[in-house]
Structures are given as C-alpha cells and as structure tokens.
Design a binder for these strands. Structure first.
Lengths: 216, 216
DNA sequence: GGGGTTAACATTGTCGACAATCTACCTTTC
DNA sequence: GAAAGGTAGATTGTCGACAATGTTAACCCC
C-alpha cells in the first residue's frame, strides 16, 4: 500500500515531447532515415521550436536521432550491424535485470507476472501485432521489476529500437507459437530461480531475434 | 593506416556543451545537488540560453541532471542506493563488452593494451589521483575496444558517475596496490581468453568498488 | 509567537525574429 | 555538352525579450 502523499513530479515540456517522439518513432510514424523538420513538427505539437529542439536533443543523446549540423535531425536507420549492437546492449541489460531479480528479488512473483503475459500471448494467437506488443511488454516488465532506474532508462531506448525493427518487418515477423514457448520457458526459469538456465535462455532468445531480423 | 579523407562530422553546439558539462560534473566543478543556473553558465560559456538548455537536456536524459519544473536543473546526488545501481549498470555493460571481445575480438591484443595501463598504474604508485584516472582509463579502453556504439554511449554516463564518486572521496580512495593487482588479473584473464574467470573477476571488482564507496 | 497574506525578486519557460548555412536549380562560359 | 559559378528557397542555429512560476522576506492579524 503506497501513500497518496508523494512528491508530485510534473514533467517538463521537453520530456513530454521526447516521450511523444519516442512513441512516434517506435510506431513507424517517422520512418527510419526521415528528417524531422522542426517548424512542421512544432506546429503539429502546438509548441514553439525551442522546447521541441530540447526534446529532440534527448533522443539524439539516446541515439534514436542523428544530428547533421546545419542540416537537421534524422531518424536512425537500423542497419544489420545496428540490430546486432542493439541486441548486445539489450541482452546486457536484461541479463543484469534478471540476475538482480534472482539474487535479491521475489523471483517467484516475477516469474508468475511474466507467465501472465505469456498467457495473453497464447490467447492472442495469430495476431502478429498483438503478439509483438506482448513480447515487448514481457521484456519491459522484466526490467521494470528489477527496480533499477539506470537499467530501465537504458532499456527504454533499446525497446524503441526493437519496436522500429518489428514495425519495419510487419507481416514477416510471425512464428508466434515459437515465441510464446520461448517466453514461457524464460518465465519459468525465473520463477524457479534457475540462474544458469535464465542466462542461457535469455542469450538464446536474443540470438533468435537477431537471426529473425537480419536474415531477411 | 587510415585515410585523411573522411566525412567531417562537425559536432553540434549542444553536443559540445554537453561534453563540457559532463567533464565539469565528473571533476567536481559542479557539486552534487548544486543547481545549474542557466544565465550564469550561458555567460561563462559564451552562448545564449537556448543551446545551453539543449545541451543540458542531454545530461538530463542521461540522468546526470534532474529537472524540477520551474525550479531548474540540479546535479544528481549519488546516494548509496545510486552507487549500487550505477555499478549494476556498469557491470552489465562491461561484462557484455568483455564477452564480445572474448567471443569475436582479438582478446590477446586487448589484454596487452589493458596491461599497459596496469603498468602505468604501478608506476604512478602512491598518487591517488593518477591511479584513479588510470582506473577509469582501463575500463574506458575495455569498452571502447569492444567496438559497440551503444555500450560505449551507456558506459560514458556510468564513468561520469564513477568520477563523481571518486572525486567525492578524494583522499580516502586509496589501496592503490590492491587495485593495480585486481586490474592486472582482469587484463590477464582477458588476454588468455578465459571467459569464466573474466566474469568472476569483473563481478568481484565491482563489488569491491561498491564496498569501498558505500561503507564510509 | 504562530499563521497567513502580500509584494518584490530571481529564475525558468516560451516565443518570435533574424542570421548562417545548405541544397537545388539555373545561368554562364569554354 | 560539361563544369564552374551564381542565385533563390528552405531549414537550421542563435539570440534577446517577455511571460509564468516559485521563493523569500516583510508585514499584519489573531
């Protein structure tokens, strides 16, 4: 039971803008490689260019946008090399998160929470978009439950990049059955507190994803 | 031998400002918890508040600054909890970097390069500031040689936070002999391609650091 | 004296305007 | 016809000014 009285943290405008941009990029509203034209976007968001630029700097820092001086900011284009690098980072983060949960968290509860998502995944059978969202939800939950601000922050960026990849593939990204099973195994490994198996499955899971994404 | 002809990437002003701020924070020029007053700093840097604010947003994204709406930006204050979390993230990154080097890099060359820093560490014996810098150089080199843009970007933030911790301690942070030996063992594990031992030493190294920093 | 109100100050948040730069197209010249 | 040069348009980079907000201290009332 958390208290109702807590410091109220009003988000700054740049931070809100950054969130909107992340969502837009993750959902393919801005295509990879596309230029973000400040004046247009500022008008659409109903703010001036100042706060918008500040928000965009955040995404630049995250590596979701790349800056070319006097030319503008562009959405990154995920090369196969980028995909590999992103999964390297993602695996590092998620392994650390899983490890922390197994070491000093309630891994049984976490495992059950993850299995709930797996159930939904099985229920959403056939719908690639829904399964994709649940896939992301699974990994987001895993890291969130590790209760690490830094891992969460880094992971958020990786998940946007993952979304970009999934979105770029659309239909091609299927094999929903196999994915549900992979996630179920992983959730169970965590639920039972099996460190070695969690490591192994997580690693294999990432390798599979890379394989699916780059060999196309 | 690299070519002299390569695309010239001019850094954007916010990016330069962000770099300067990171250095300033890492070297204790801005104390933890201190407010960054925009007008003052803009005057000192010789730019207007616009670009400065954009640069500061980058550090906010990195978690080095925290924003309180209508109040301003403040340098983070590293609580013991923060130190633990930072080392969790750092360990995740460095393990991934080491693992990548051992898997598909020239680990022997990397190990030797790291040993060169260890030698300097032994030579700088007694000078805590010098040893501290070499400690950081060691870990920066490790991650840089993994050749991963994402791990490098994430690691940079962690290293600023590490610097903050070291700087906050100043004199207390000694035991230079022990540190040189720890690093030497680690470098040798990498040089010989020993995955398990690298993992183990890296993990122990981080735990030691946490111990030194929080138990004060 | 404690609590509440008000006013002055400092700082941040936002905006519009201007300068600098790049791109693309057109013109000129050989 | 191809290359060099010039020009117009569009976009980003930067700045100064104003509005909004929060803080502090003085003052008043009970």
């Amino acid at each position: 039971m958390t208290s109702y009285i807590e410091p109220l943290a009003q988000e700054s405008t740049p931070s809100i803008i950054a969130d909107k941009l992340r969502k837009a990029i993750g959902h393919g509203e801005f295509k990879p490689g596309a230029q973000i034209v400040e004046a247009d976007l500022a008008r659409k968001l109903g703010v001036s260019r100042g706060p918008l630029r500040e928000g965009m700097q955040r995404l630049t820092q995250e590596g979701l946008l790349v800056s070319i001086r006097n030319r503008g900011l562009f959405v990154i284009d995920m090369t196969p090399q980028d995909i590999r690098d992103m999964y390297l980072a993602r695996e590092a983060i998620e392994r650390a998160a899983a490890f922390k949960i197994l070491r000093d968290g309630d891994f049984e509860t976490v495992g059950l929470a993850l299995l709930a998502i797996v159930d939904q995944m099985a229920a959403a059978d056939g719908d690639p978009a829904a399964v994709g969202e649940l896939d992301i939800a699974f990994h987001e939950l895993l890291v969130r439950l590790a209760d690490s601000p830094r891992l969460s922050r880094m992971h958020r960026t990786s998940m946007i990049e993952t979304r970009m990849c999934i979105h770029a593939l659309e239909e091609t990204y299927l094999a929903t059955d196999a994915r549900a099973i992979e996630h179920e195994r992983l959730a169970n490994a965590i639920r039972t507190g099996d460190v070695a198996r969690t490591d192994e499955l997580l690693s294999a899971h990432m390798d599979d994803a890379i394989e699916r994404l780059v060999s196309r």
